[in-house]
Nucleic acid binder design. Structure first.
Lengths: 335, 335
DNA sequence: TGACGTGATGTAAGCGCTTACGACGACGAA
DNA sequence: TTCGTCGTCGTAAGCGCTTACATCACGTCA
């Protein structure tokens, strides 16, 4: 039975009722081997009876560890962040840590929130796209290990990301070499995020290797809302383009749908590719050619690395890059 | 400049350096109005100089509040949980609380983890599908407010969910009345989760209202892996069925794709419907008829309610049900 | 001029844990 | 018998905050 009279039970109530000292109660819970079986059982019975759960804050204060990691993401749309969180949570849980998530989208005091978060966790991972000042990052880094995702700008801070440049180059070359495309457009804003920048860099590299002049990127956010605009832009363009390399699947799906709705033959007249390999990519017609990233593994590896950092603070920052995989479907022109 | 010599700064270091007592430092940070402007500035300067961030555990211990909520979900696949988390995080953040997520999938000591979590948060929301013992739920409830999602089984605990029975009935009736379907199958395991049970109940109700005999459900999980099996089952069945009501979109998309691949005319020969309105539902051909749930709002409302409970513990448990919206596309037979 | 608010700050008592250290009894060896 | 040794457990000192209360320096007002 759970007692619900008045205040919540503390280690003192348990000790009292079991006729032992609080030290013994603590030992029963943390190092059962150090206490005699008979007293252990007695204490555990009381713990069960009172429904005692040790207070995490008090424990954290005593052991000087929050047993929690912070994960700061801009939002949670699409499978990318969700998979990342899933992988990270798993990796953190393996080390007995829980993860507290902070979603910055729609909040205007991100810097304050991040600082506050820094007081409640042992380590923090920051998505590159998160709008946080470098001053805040510095302050937080001085206090605890920080890992950054999908942003290799700052060499001084350790980062994780998936490969972008070479995959984008490979994808672009596929369109040029295999499908004979000559007038490609890149959709996305390279200045918006580091990974978009890298994907565009790969796009450019493939053009240069083929002796073609790369077009300027067509600016767009990651949202599908931008699709219609981009699609009509392409159509009004008189369809000078014969291929569209989009910064992510959401954009690609939206563009492709509008193109098809406008009677444009995809991929006959124009190829469309995305990035991320979302679920919809394999259900649409034509199937969307895209790049698949090992996001879950990424999350897990970051968590594992974080745990290592927490044990051994002094190791040089490294830049980790995980490989991606080109997924050829029909939207590029493949059968 | 951030000082990184030795230990992290505490409220004592700040007080020392600013020549005030720790009480004043605390006041500067929490109730700036109560301290003279000149000392306030002096203290803030030191705070900045040392890069001081108050320790959350110590604060929690002193104020007896963790300023955090626990959110326990089975996993994070698909948009449902992600949206839920997004909405919840927003609602919690408005009250100054952060949210720590616990994903139970793949963990074998869920009960222990949930109990431990209960020691680090002020309130907890549990997804109905989470595999946690009722004993644990009782223990946690004795300690802090608990809200349950998508599971109205336990009347004693307050729950939130989206409407299922009537929407499912409406959807099924649409297939029967508008599209003249006479032999429908329900795909999903009602015993698997409470919401599936309710959706099947609506399916049955529509049949009874139309004087038809409802078929037994075709068991399936929420995963798309089950799609092929179900599809071939339907085909081997000689296509006695002329419609499939699936427990969610993932299942529906998978079934539909297999059906189409087998040369079956959807929706001509057989209707397919889902539940959730995932992104893919509006990109596939034919567009997937489904039910859209206000998941984000759900999350937010749960968070708001939790905040209310945290302030006023003694209010009777209520059962909240949010309305859903039928989204007619082409997979049911509509134009 | 002295009693008295008033505002600003310091003092100190917790909050509920963990753990180093010491006390104590039982037990085996000398 | 006496003296380690060892297993078991209690004592008490923190961990870094918040906040009730005490204190103190100033006007203010009669």
């Amino acid at each position: 039975m759970v007692e619900s009279t008045g205040r919540r039970p503390t280690i003192y109530s348990v000790a009292d009722r079991a006729g032992v000292s609080i030290a013994t109660v603590s030992r029963v819970l943390r190092r059962p081997g150090e206490v005699r079986a008979s007293t252990r059982d007695r204490v555990l019975a009381v713990v069960e009876e009172l429904g005692y759960v040790p207070d995490g804050a008090a424990r954290s204060l005593a052991v000087k560890s929050h047993e929690a990691h912070g994960l700061v993401l801009p939002e949670l749309r699409g499978p990318y962040y969700a998979d990342l969180l899933t992988g990270y949570e798993q990796g953190a849980a393996e080390g007995g840590a829980s993860v507290v998530v902070l979603l910055t989208h729609g909040k205007d005091d991100v810097d304050l929130l991040v600082r506050r978060l820094a007081g409640r966790v042992d380590g923090m991972v920051l998505m590159g796209a998160v709008p946080v000042s470098s001053g805040t990052v510095a302050a937080v880094r001085a206090k605890l290990p920080v890992l950054v995702l999908a942003d290799r700008h700052q060499v001084s801070v350790e980062s994780f990301s998936t490969e972008n440049v070479r995959s984008a180059e490979q994808l672009t070359r596929h369109l040029i070499d295999v499908h004979g495309r000559r007038s490609l457009r890149f959709v996305g804003s390279p200045e918006f995020a580091d990974d978009v920048r890298e994907r565009y860099a790969g796009f450019v590299a493939a053009h240069e290797a083929a002796g073609l002049a790369p077009a300027e990127p067509v600016p767009a956010t990651f949202r599908e809302d931008d699709g219609p605009r981009v699609a009509s832009l392409l159509v009004e363009d008189g369809l000078g383009a014969d291929g569209v390399v989009c910064a992510n699947d959401e954009l690609a799906l939206s563009v492709m749908q509008r193109l098809l709705a406008a009677g444009v033959d995809v991929p006959g007249r124009i190829s469309v590719t995305g990035w991320d390999d979302v679920m919809a990519a394999r259900y649409v017609t034509p199937g969307l050619t895209t790049v698949s990233q090992p996001v879950r593994e990424l999350g897990r590896e970051v968590a594992v690395r974080m745990r290592a950092l927490l044990e051994d603070r002094h190791s040089a920052p490294e830049q980790h890059v995980l490989p991606t995989r080109l997924v050829l479907r029909q939207s590029c022109g493949c059968a």
